[in-house]
């Protein structure tokens, strides 16, 4: 009897902790129904400049899924942790051309192309894989909303900018499919499983 109880307990613990179910990830955001068709929110057109002075647009990520975040170089708070976790994602998918990465600076005045270049070198990342971009202030703050992220100027917080340290996953069709708290290593573990799920969904099993 005791054994059975134990087994039941073990099973329920296992069920509760088992990895998230397979199958498609949800498409995030408010959906509309127009003429009987469901319209999902999509990432609008954008054009920014990266650490190699290359223009980065939606076309840069054509046929790819990509991971997004918002940061700034002289960030005294969460950015280094988000970058450290971003580096884990970078290392895992470094040789997988289906995955791209895009970090937006929200301190466009100070984070010039040269500053982003130095930052990238010190992180040891390749611009072909991980684009650190700057650009028009309003365009960057505006697109943060589309990625369900916060980016605002706030002189009352350390560093002068308020932002969520989220990592956001976008699919080939410009839909946001997952996100996580980029400061939390465990959440990022889960997020990388979501990347695997999205790869399986959009490219089929290898």
């Amino acid at each position: 009897m005791k054994n059975i109880l134990f087994l039941a307990l073990a099973l329920s613990v296992w069920a509760a902790c088992a990895p998230s179910p397979s199958g498609p990830l949800p498409i995030l955001g408010e959906r509309d129904v127009v003429n009987g068709d469901t319209i999902y929110p999509t990432i609008p057109d954008f054009a920014f400049v990266d650490q190699d002075s290359q223009v980065v647009t939606n076309a840069t990520f054509a046929g790819k899924i990509y991971v997004v975040d918002f940061f700034f170089v002289h960030c005294p708070t969460i950015c280094p942790k988000v970058k450290a976790n971003g580096l884990r994602v970078y290392q895992k998918y470094k040789n997988d051309a289906r995955v791209g990465m895009l970090s937006h600076s929200i301190d466009t005045k100070n984070d010039t192309v040269a500053a982003l270049k130095r930052h990238a070198q010190k992180l040891g990342i390749e611009a072909t894989k991980w684009h650190l971009v700057t650009g028009d202030n309003d365009a960057i703050y505006g697109i943060a909303d589309n990625y369900f992220s916060v980016a605002t100027v706030n002189p009352d917080v350390p560093g002068g900018f308020d932002h969520s340290g989220r990592l956001i996953l976008v699919d080939q069709n410009r839909h946001v499919r997952s996100f996580c708290d980029g400061t939390d290593a465990k959440e990022v573990d889960r997020f990388m499983l979501d990347i695997d799920r999205l790869l399986a969904e959009q490219y089929g099993k290898h």
Partner: peptide, 16 residues
């Protein structure tokens, strides 16, 4: 401190 130097004190690349 942990935001920059990390919980395990390893820092971050050539930045920290």
């Amino acid at each position: 401190c942990a935001n920059c130097h990390m919980d395990d004190g390893v820092g971050l690349g050539g930045l920290i």
